[in-house]
């Protein structure tokens, strides 16, 4: 039984934590140019920008690094009328992509959630071993872990050991 999955860290991407009250989400969506998802774990996408709803009043926006100032500008423009918090966290996290037929089981070495219940295109904040992560199921067999930078060696260390374990076939 050959092992056919890969684990890789991704290049830097623009990330924001966006927070606002329910009544201002319409204004936010308008300024961003697409509808923010309304349920926790849902994602919405427009061009190369995505929004993932992490909490009742919290979204993670991702975009190319160079597109950040555009987002900052459009949201700053509506701040007086629709107060919110937009905080650049592009450097806080590093993304790790796990893809392949064994990806889900590879994550189950350290992730207590029932990953079968995380549908394609959804993401959640959860825990991997003892590390808080944002776990997104990008496709059926492709996951992304967003990990605070200083925890990356630990998470990658665990995944490396797990890959070796899967490769040994037991």
């Amino acid at each position: 039984m050959a092992f056919n999955s890969t684990v890789e860290t991704l290049p830097a991407m623009g990330r924001f934590s966006l927070r606002c009250k329910r009544e201002n989400t319409v204004a936010m969506s308008k300024a961003l140019g697409f509808e923010l998802p309304s349920s926790i774990s849902e994602t919405a996408q427009s061009g190369d920008m995505t929004a993932l709803k992490l909490g009742p009043d919290e979204w993670m926006l991702t975009c190319p690094m160079e597109a950040r100032s555009e987002i900052e500008k459009s949201l700053a423009a509506i701040y007086p009328d629709a107060v919110h918090s937009l905080t650049d966290i592009s450097s806080r996290e590093v993304s790790i992509r796990i893809s392949g037929p064994e990806a889900e089981e590879l994550l189950s070495t350290s992730c207590p959630r029932n990953l079968a219940e995380l549908k394609s295109g959804r993401g959640v904040r959860t825990i991997f071993d003892s590390v808080q992560v944002i776990l997104t199921r990008e496709e059926q067999n492709q996951f992304r872990l967003d990990v605070w930078r200083s925890f990356v060696p630990h998470v990658m260390g665990l995944l490396t050991v797990a890959v070796a374990e899967f490769e040994c076939g037991l």
């Binding site: 927070r19 009250k21 009043d57 919110h84 918090s85 806080r92 996290e93």
Partner: peptide
């Protein structure tokens, strides 16, 4: 209160 908190320890 209209205020939100974000950890930026690892941003910087």
């Amino acid at each position: 209160l209209d205020v939100w908190l974000t950890s930026t320890t690892e941003q910087w």
